[in-house]
């Protein structure tokens, strides 16, 4: 029983990480209808930025918000300079551009900061929390809390602000949106900017656990995709819940299903993607997208 609870707790903690990255993926998908494969590397790069600011002597929260702001601007810039020219191109072209961006960001980070991992501070207390025989870090709870705060912010933004509504409209029906006076191009750029900012938050939450190095996101991104697919690519709340589900399932299956064990944990995530796509392509909480062909 103790193992079970400890594995669930530990699964929720890693699930919180998956969820926060999945949130950024969903964000960009909602705003631009693009699945951004470079999301993980953008978040990693933002985290290095935060690390540089911390090294320069800034207090944690100053570095945190400054990083979010710079990442926001960076996301905007990437959309304007790199994605814009291929906006009208087929999906495959955009995917290739994203993968190119992934490779470039990874190499540049390695070139500037080297491939040796660095410790990254957590804003939460260092001492582990004991609840009976169960032990977990304050950071684990912090990650989930921060993810929920971001989620709430997004919910309010998309649901109750004109800008949020305009962004949703621009993604779903660009032509009609343009006709009613929405500046579709800027809405897309804003989507990238927001996703970059959310990614930065996710990166800064992930780094204290997995340590900072240029490849820190590569493993997580696959799980984030599983989370976003499971929860539904159109549902931010679903993505976070999907993340927690993936984290817990992964741990429990790895521990209690002998033929899977820890060796096939990744396969579990990939199988989840497959099953969801076959059985319920819109995910658990996603809206069914109907397109006229």
């Amino acid at each position: 029983m103790e193992t079970f609870i400890q594995q669930v707790v530990s699964g929720l903690a890693t699930g919180g990480i998956y969820g926060s990255v999945a949130l950024a993926l969903v964000m960009i998908y909602q705003a631009t209808d693009v699945v951004n494969f470079a999301q993980g590397e953008m978040a990693m790069f933002s985290t290095y930025l935060a690390w540089t600011l911390l090294q320069a002597g800034l207090p944690y929260w100053a570095a945190f918000f400054l990083t979010v702001a710079i990442s926001f601007a960076g996301g905007l810039l990437i959309e304007r300079v790199i994605v814009r020219p291929v906006e009208q191109a087929p999906v495959l072209t955009i995917v290739i551009v994203c993968i190119g961006l992934l490779v470039i960001l990874n190499s540049v980070a390695g070139w500037i900061y080297s491939y040796i991992q660095k410790p990254f501070p957590s804003p939460f207390p260092q001492t582990p929390i004991h609840a009976g025989a169960i032990v977990f870090g304050a950071h684990d709870i912090g990650v989930i809390a921060v993810t929920l705060v971001v989620l709430a912010f997004l919910y309010v933004f998309f649901r109750y602000t004109t800008l949020g509504l305009a962004m949703r409209a621009a993604a779903q029906n660009p032509i009609s949106s343009r006709l009613v006076g929405i500046r579709v191009g800027w809405m897309l750029a804003l989507g990238w900017a927001l996703a970059a900012a959310i990614g930065a938050v996710a990166g800064m939450m992930v780094a204290p656990i997995v340590f900072l190095d240029p490849t820190m996101m590569s493993g997580i991104l696959i799980y984030a995709f599983a989370s976003a697919t499971l929860g539904g690519f159109t549902s931010p709340g679903g993505a976070v819940l999907g993340g927690l589900l993936v984290g817990v399932t992964e741990n429990l299956v790895g521990t209690y299903v002998p033929f899977i064990g820890t060796e096939l944990k990744l396969t579990v995530a990939l199988a989840m993607i497959l099953v969801v796509l076959v059985v319920k392509p819109s995910g658990l909480f996603g809206r069914v997208v109907v397109r006229r062909v």
Binding site: Q6, T255, K265, L266
Partner: peptide, 20 residues
């Protein structure tokens, strides 16, 4: 005996099992 893949994000779950 607990194994991990290079692609795994963390080894937290394995450490928990080893301890238990």
């Amino acid at each position: 005996r607990q194994s991990y893949e290079v692609t795994d994000p963390t080894v937290d779950s394995q450490i928990v099992n080893l301890k238990n």
